[in-house]
Design a protein around this nucleic acid. Structure first.
Length: 440
RNA sequence: CGGGGCGUCGUAUACCGGUAGUACGCAUCCUUUGGGAGGAUGAUGACGGAGUUCAAUUCUCCGCGCCCCGACCA
């Protein structure tokens, strides 16, 4: 993509109505646009980044047997009344609206109810279990106070997976599998080293839920981490009996601020019983389906990555989620030789399978470099006078600032090798997933 | 929802009861070209409503919007 064609521009200053680092940087770099308090649109660079995050999650959900669907935003009042989650005194953050023909509806805050009802059409025997379905969908929550930029909005993207199992044993097995899949997601996003499985309140459903908490000063939660065991406890359940139960000692726990990047819940039979999702077991006995729910907010995750990995110059995206892997910067816009060289290199990079963001704008070098720092693409290739005389490309690592000089052909070959390796890995993963399906 | 604060060109800011100024950005031109360059010229602005006043962007009230602290957060 030629940067001269990108419709977004960078800004020197953050808008005064944003205090959160993630929102300041994302707006300055043109990734997002604030529509309302707690409501953001995603512009080309932001959408590409978000798409990469979504795809990583999608791959990991597919790998554990998840089947992707899309449910509706508009909800059936009658359905939610049956589980007693419609009244404002029970759930106070609905956005409710009325049909012109009469009657009320609401914008989905979560999707246990509609999916459980859908499943009543499709699950009736033990042969139909287990099943796992998930979606990426905007959720709407009428928060009294949005805050922290894109990390706590009123409308936000959510990946929610729901599991349907025969009994608690089958459920527990999948729960453990889902936990590992979540860990993989955070590792691939570059925040695995600072994200902890955290025991938290299970709310009305069960004793505990498990949160995935990323250590960050921007976090709203306080957690107590056991570094050796690699797990943590949320302050909301930080009591002696709970610690004893989890085999943790106060002496080894470290208090940190953290932000919830995901959570997994054991729902038991709360929804299946109230909505009649039953199956007949091997002995002809009718039983309620045992459910779980598993959430990750991709938009929040994007904010967490910005909060966690940016530096004083701007954002620093991990390879896996960066809007582009490579930022090609031509330094002297009025020198036809350099422009021609950079143009040719741009085409060759595309041919090698790595489309860069190509800063071909007619602006000064300083502005380009400052913008490149802000945008935070992991690898930067700088083309200037020296490049042409030496035949070596100046390749800079955004995260470390390290600069290497690499002969042009070597660099192009290394990209080709990486692309081929990724294709092979993708094929292997597909084969593995297919064989996993067969063994079920 | 309780408390506090704020709404001025696209962005960030200043001043003022009586010409609304500056910087960046934008437009045209000249110079400049490896870390947000200099000059010249130009376009663009007071959240909405009511009130006080000869006169309101400025003061008062009511809306609306935004931010922060707390509460809340399947």
């Amino acid at each position: 993509m030629r940067q001269s064609q990108l419709f977004t521009k960078t800004r020197r200053e953050a808008p005064k109505d944003e205090e959160a680092k993630n929102a300041q940087l994302l707006i300055r770099a043109g990734f997002v646009h604030k529509e309302l308090s707690g409501v953001y649109s995603y512009l080309p660079l932001g959408f590409k980044t978000l798409t990469n995050i979504v795809n990583i999650i999608r791959e990991e959900m597919n790998a554990i047997g998840g089947q992707e669907i899309v449910m509706t935003a508009l909800q059936d009042k009658e359905l939610w009344s049956r589980t007693d989650r419609w009244d404002d005194d029970k759930v106070d953050n609905w956005f409710k609206s009325a049909f012109k023909s009469g009657g009320e509806t609401g914008l989905a805050i979560t999707h246990e109810e509609p999916l459980t009802r859908i499943m009543t059409d499709h699950i009736s025997s033990y042969r139909d279990l287990p099943r796992y379905a998930y979606q990426f969908q905007n959720k709407f929550r009428n928060e009294l106070r949005a805050k922290s930029g894109i990390m706590r909005g009123k409308e936000f993207l959510m990946k929610d997976l729901y599991s349907f199992s025969k009994d608690t044993e089958e459920h527990d097995r999948f729960f453990a599998v889902a936990r590992e899949a979540y860990k993989k997601v955070f590792e691939r996003m570059g925040i695995g080293d600072r994200t902890y499985v955290t025991f938290a309140s299970g709310g009305i459903f069960s004793e505990f839920s498990e949160e995935f908490q990323t250590v960050s000063d921007a976090g709203e939660d306080t957690i107590y981490i056991d570094e050796v065991k690699g797990i943590a406890v949320n302050k909301e359940v930080y009591t002696d009996p709970v610690l004893a139960k989890l085999g943790l000692s106060k002496d080894t726990l470290i208090e940190k601020k953290a932000i919830e990047a995901g959570n997994i819940f054991n729902l038991g039979t709360r929804f299946s019983e109230s909505l009649g999702l039953m199956y007949t077991d091997e002995h002809g006995e009718r039983k309620p389906v045992v459910m779980g729910s598993y959430g990750i907010g991709p938009t929040r995750l994007m904010g967490i990555i910005v909060e966690s990995l940016s530096d004083e110059k701007g954002m620093v995206w991990p390879e896996a989620v960066a809007p582009f892997r490579v930022h090609l910067v031509s330094m002297v816009p009025n020198d036809p030789t350099i422009v021609a060289y950079a143009d040719a290199l741009y085409e060759e990079l595309i041919a090698a399978g790595v489309e860069p963001l190509y800063d071909d704008r007619d602006v000064r070098a300083g502005e380009k470099l400052t913008d490149a720092d802000l945008i935070g693409i992991p690898t930067r290739i700088i083309v200037g006078k020296e490049t042409i005389s030496s035949g070596e490309l100046e390749v800079m690592n955004r995260a470390t600032g390290e600069v290497k000089r690499i002969p042009r052909t070597d660099l192009l070959n290394s990209f080709r090798t990486v692309v081929v390796a990724e294709e092979v890995a993708a094929q292997e993963a597909a084969v593995e997933a297919a064989s996993a399906d067969e063994t079920k």
